[in-house]
């Protein structure tokens, strides 16, 4: 579980409410266990508990509202007891509940029937656990289930290699054996990260370019092969830096290729993106029907023009030209 970044402002306030609720029914917990349970640092636990214990209001003096055992704290154990207030865990805000419920609805395409039942139960708990009687402000509609996605999920869960027919971005179709490490997605598009036995390298594969997935033997994970990267497209030294102009309606292009690029406002943006094969550029740009424009270099613009000409049938594809 990733440690969340250091807490401040409303995040820290929210955490202190949650921690207080937890500590009421969980006395004498070790700091390191609390840190791992909440996925925060030990320092944050210690600081939050001290703040809570010093809180005092109205009729109560600080030491009357919360009692922190400082002797136990020295030994790394949190023991906090309470005046009769803050009896329980705070419920979720509508937005918090909507975020989690939408996430669950998105996961539904991945799970087996037992988990499907669990998801329905959780959605009903979430609608009860949200503040007030408000309906959730946003929701994800279920995605279509896909047999290949289910097989890929099973392969990752059971550490089993797969074989499949794969069409790479240059259009070559070949049979591959893959040891899958991670199954990732961006909305409707799914990617499988893993070690390709056929090419002997770590690669990322698009699920919609796979066919005939067959589950093979179980394999042992190689020592940290693909790491914890979020990048789908990894730049290579041979890439061409292409300068794009992107209209707001096409901002998803930037999110696809440069997830860390901060998008602000609703005006067109110029952005440089490294592109591996210029012959694929037309395909990438065509998707946005003029809302993405290649400004430079000139050979990249030419590649787009060629793609359009070919798609309009203005000259026969190269292999038929002779």
């Amino acid at each position: 579980m990733p440690k969340s970044s250091s807490l401040s402002g409303t995040d820290r306030y929210n955490f202190m409410l949650a921690l207080t609720g937890y500590l009421i029914s969980n006395r004498q917990k070790r700091i390191e266990d609390l840190a791992s349970h909440f996925a925060v640092t030990e320092k944050e636990i210690r600081s939050a508990v001290v703040t809570i214990s010093l809180s005092g209001v109205g009729l109560y003096r600080p030491d009357e509202l919360f009692f922190l055992d400082y002797d136990l704290l020295e030994e790394g154990i949190i023991d906090l007891s309470f005046a009769p207030t803050l009896e329980s865990v705070p419920r979720l805000s509508t937005r918090q509940a909507a975020a989690i419920a939408s996430g669950l609805a998105y996961l539904a395409q991945l799970v087996d029937p037992t988990d499907q039942v669990a998801i329905s139960e959780l959605l009903s708990i979430l609608s009860k656990g949200a503040s007030g009687q408000q309906s959730l402000p946003f929701m994800v509609q279920p995605f279509t289930k896909d047999a290949d996605l289910e097989k890929a999920r099973q392969a990752v869960a059971e550490s089993r290699a797969i074989s499949c027919s794969y069409r790479n971005s240059s259009g070559e179709v070949m049979n591959r054996e893959i040891e899958p490490v991670r199954l990732e997605s961006r909305e409707a598009t799914w990617y499988l990260r893993g070690f390709c036995r056929t090419n002997n390298e770590d690669r990322i594969f698009r699920l919609d370019r796979m066919r005939e997935i067959v589950l093979l033997d179980t394999f042992t994970h190689r020592s940290d092969s693909s790491g914890e990267t979020e990048e789908i497209y990894e730049a290579r030294a041979t890439d061409t830096e292409v300068l794009f102009e992107v209209d707001p309606e096409a901002f998803s292009l930037i999110a696809d290729y440069k997830p860390d690029f901060e998008i602000r406002g609703n005006k067109s943006i110029q952005v440089k993106i490294p592109i591996g094969q210029l012959e694929n550029l037309g395909r990438i740009v065509a998707r946005y029907s003029g809302k993405v424009r290649v400004l430079a270099p000139e050979n990249a613009r030419a590649a787009v023009r060629e793609f359009v000409a070919k798609a309009l049938g203005e000259f026969p594809p190269a292999e038929e030209a002779e």
Binding site: A18, S93, A99, A157, L183
Partner: peptide
Amino acid sequence: RALHRIRAMGESADSSSWIGIAP
């Protein structure tokens, strides 16, 4: 923030079947 409140209900996650899934 929602997760902090959910964890405050006490139960720890059994994430074993979700390792390697990053939707």
